[in-house]
Design a protein around this nucleic acid. Sequence first.
RNA 1: GUGGAUGUAGCUCAGUUGGUUAGAGCGCUAGGUUGUGGCCCUAGAGGUCGAGGGUUCAAUCCCCUUCAUUCACCCCA
Length: 415
Amino acid sequence: MKGMNDLFSKELQARRWITQKALQAFESYGFSQVQTPVLEELSLFVRSVGKTTDIVSKEMYALEDRDGTPICMRPENTAGTVRALLEHHKLTQEQECKVFYVGPMFRRERPQKGRLREFTQVGAEFFGTDAPTADVELLSMLHQWLLSLPIGKIKLLINSLGQPQERAEYLKALRTYFEPLRDQLCSDCQRRLETNTLRLLDCKNKTCSKLADESPSILDFLQEESKQHFEAVKNGLTQLGIEFEITKKLVRGLDYYTRTVFEFIAESGLGAQNTVAAGGRYDNLVEELGGPSVPAIGFAAGIERLVILAEENGLSLDEKRPDLVLVYADDTGREQIPQIAHKLRQANIWVDFEHRKKSVKAQMRRADRMKAKEVLVLGTREIESDEGQLKSLDSGEQRFVQVSNLLSAYSPNFV
RNA sequence: GUGGAUGUAGCUCAGUUGGUUAGAGCGCUAGGUUGUGGCCCUAGAGGUCGAGGGUUCAAUCCCCUUCAUUCACCCCA
């Protein structure tokens, strides 16, 4: 399938490691894990992400359930998380709720570097307060996690989108600003002027970008409350020593965002998709989805992008090696090996041996290629005398062991 | 959805201005005497030259179509 990958041990190892780091960081902030289904009712995303967004209007894997219900594969997991928490009555105005998730998301786009149709997001959501300290806590947690990964330089961009009314005012102003300049805009931006005015702000075209620089700033349209919130977030970050950059050009593609929005971008290594994690506050979403009025803030990070960065920055995970490879020298050895291996494996020692008919030399080469730590050659001689030589493939040294009680050779190392 | 690049052995890539049996390195297999790896040496296996069609006496090489991969746009993690 285009944009959907088969993953093997090596790739999976890096992903697991990165995810593990997230769990470590998130748990120290008191977030607990949730998991929701890949399939959700289509209407959930229409109501949350927004009907007119690209994600919903042209990137969803949508289908009809057998009973006719329109369903789809989730393109993101905030909506599903909110749905799940509401269904289980875990969201109330009285208490906070901190959760995180990790799982596959699906968007039918053209794949490119750092963008797949099936991709994995790690995300967290903090419900129940609109205190700026919550924004700071979430960002700090994300920051801590990203810092624990070898992904090169990253930068935190923040902005405030204000409340819906403020944003509406701003959009109006933005349109009146750009309308007279229409002819100078690139064709994409002329279209954006109608469809997605905010996106006009981060056009890569030089002229557009220059004009955008001069455009009104959303920050000037914030009412006192939103303004104070944003100030408090900035102060909080500064107090924790977390560097950030304010950029009025930061916009998000999902409709539900309010006030604080942010993005961690990688300074190199990802090509055009340099956003590594992004999110924002969504104070109205829970209510819009039929729940109580519960403010929240969250983020999602793309695991595949982090893996790319980690690999480019030389993440090297020590591969697991077989503890022992048993090599047969003759038929007697060959007959005994499965039983000997069985005993060791029950003690969780990684043992391997060749099943096909091979020479000792071939078996040795195989053991070497597998990077086995040790080998033991077994033939009539060893079985009868109950004494074999365990050879270290690293040092080449051999040590005598009792074949009938091989386990004892390991007990010191495996206690 | 749009645009560019690429598609030759398991992997990384040469190559033929169209001409009989398509190459290298790495990897793989087997040997280098009797039961011991890594280095070295020798031999070997392995390719519908992405697929389909066209031009030609002849195509892996030229033309068309298609598929796949990849990068970028749109958009986004």
